[in-house]
């Protein structure tokens, strides 16, 4: 689960943060949505933050 959260954090940073110079935009909104949908499926398949917390408590 920690690994999946790290991936979510990574994708969030790479797509939404960082220097954005005025080059040609090569990602469409649909592409970005697909990456996020992929991540949400990945996260849903392994649990939620709540389950991470429960695991950490045991």
């Amino acid at each position: 689960m920690q690994q999946q959260i790290t991936l979510l954090e990574l994708v969030d940073r790479v797509l939404n943060k960082g220097v954005s110079l005025s080059g040609d935009i090569t990602l469409s909104v649909a592409d970005v949505d697909l990456v996020y949908v992929g991540l949400r499926v990945l996260l849903a398949s392994v649990g939620t933050l709540e389950e991470l917390q429960l695991r950490d408590d045991t």
Binding site: R13, V14, L15, N16, K17, G18, V19, S20, L21, S22, G23, D24, I25, T26, L27, D31, V32
Partner: peptide, 23 residues
């Protein structure tokens, strides 16, 4: 360094240089 945001492309070095110099 400053990491670059993913999803922008430059056709050539001149376009990259111009974009950098703007900022």
């Amino acid at each position: 360094l400053l990491p670059a945001r993913y999803g922008r492309a430059f056709p050539d070095e001149a376009a990259l240089d111009a974009s950098l110099r703007e900022r």
